[in-house]
Simulated scan of single mutants.
Amino acid sequence: MADAPGRTDATSAGEAVSVRGLVKQFGDNRAVGGIDLSVPAGSFYGVVGPNGAGKTTTLSIVAGLLRADEGSVTICGVDQAAQPQAAKRLMGVLPDRLRTFDRLTGRQLLYYYGLLRGLSADVIEKRAADLARAFDLGDALSRVVSDYSAGMTKKIMLAGAMIHSPRVLVLDEPFESVDPVSSAVILDILRAYVSHGGTVILSSHGMDLVERVCSRVAIIVGGEVLAEGTIDEVRAGQTLEARFVELAGSSGEVEGLEWLHTFSD
């Protein structure tokens, strides 16, 4: 069968996501400066970098939430620029700064997500119940999302991102402000998802977590990829955190704080 318009050979090459020459400028600020990434299908792929490095901008472009000034993004063989809706259907997205309809109950929110993804009411009901059980949300589905804790909010948003069974999950800081119990639940679900062929791209400041769960990682600093490859390749005999600090450098200034060493009592 001939490839659909806008398709490439990325799927046959085993790539779930291919990013080439990505550039994004905000005024005088070059947030992303020619980034290339290749994310294998069925993998946990980590994106790390200091604040303001361009991680969120890059993931937002991959997710179709921002438009790049230059470059291309291919999702499971679908050219995002040529077929944006088809590319978005293949993805579930958990953005950084969570914004959602938090005056809805958890059940209503999942139903809304399901409708947006074109699912029938009976399928949504079944999947919402399955997701609530898996994410240990329990009675929370009957409560408005604005009453949720940070961990519960992340879980209901992630459940919404997964309800249409996407091939790729793009998760920006999925474990930030999440308690260890909720983190373990989320991680178990994501591991099972990847083991069955799904692909997870996540950004995180938790180097230990990335080192533990990701098969590949990219270190982004100043809108550029400074290192990319398997965890072992990138850390080069160090811990991932030590390698990250080595590449990103330290802008901290210790001198001039001598007054802090003389207490005021």
Score class of each variant (00 low, 15 high):
3 D>V: 01
135 F>T: 08
81 A>Q: 15
19 V>C: 06
183 S>A: 12
257 L>C: 01
80 Q>M: 13
34 G>H: 07
231 I>G: 10
24 K>A: 00
239 T>P: 07
100 T>K: 00
224 E>S: 08
218 A>C: 06
136 D>M: 13
169 L>W: 05
48 V>L: 10
179 D>I: 13
85 Q>H: 11
176 E>N: 10
106 G>S: 03
128 A>F: 06
87 A>G: 12
157 M>A: 12
155 K>R: 13
72 S>I: 01
163 I>K: 11
155 K>Y: 05
68 A>C: 03
180 P>G: 09
10 A>V: 05
50 P>A: 03
156 I>L: 02
68 A>V: 06
29 N>S: 06
243 R>Q: 14
122 D>K: 10
36 D>V: 15
257 L>I: 03
102 D>L: 13
99 R>G: 14
53 A>F: 02
148 Y>N: 10
210 V>S: 08
56 T>V: 00
9 D>I: 07
49 G>C: 09
243 R>M: 10
245 V>E: 08
62 V>S: 01
106 G>W: 00
107 R>K: 11
70 E>C: 04
72 S>F: 06
259 W>L: 12
2 A>W: 11
252 G>K: 07
181 V>L: 11
255 E>C: 08
76 C>A: 12
228 E>C: 09
246 E>S: 14
178 V>W: 10
46 G>Q: 03
207 M>T: 05
13 A>Y: 05
57 T>Q: 02
186 I>K: 08
22 L>H: 06
144 V>E: 13
52 G>H: 00
77 G>V: 13
24 K>N: 02
61 I>G: 00
217 V>N: 12
225 V>G: 04
52 G>N: 04
146 S>Y: 02
99 R>S: 10
26 F>R: 09
104 L>I: 12
190 L>T: 01
77 G>Y: 07
249 G>L: 03
85 Q>D: 12
152 M>E: 05
218 A>F: 03
190 L>A: 01
96 D>G: 09
81 A>C: 12
22 L>I: 01
249 G>D: 06
65 L>E: 11
197 G>N: 08
197 G>S: 14
258 E>G: 13
260 L>H: 04
11 T>S: 06
72 S>Q: 15
207 M>S: 02
115 L>F: 13
140 A>D: 09
209 L>Q: 15
49 G>D: 08
4 A>V: 02
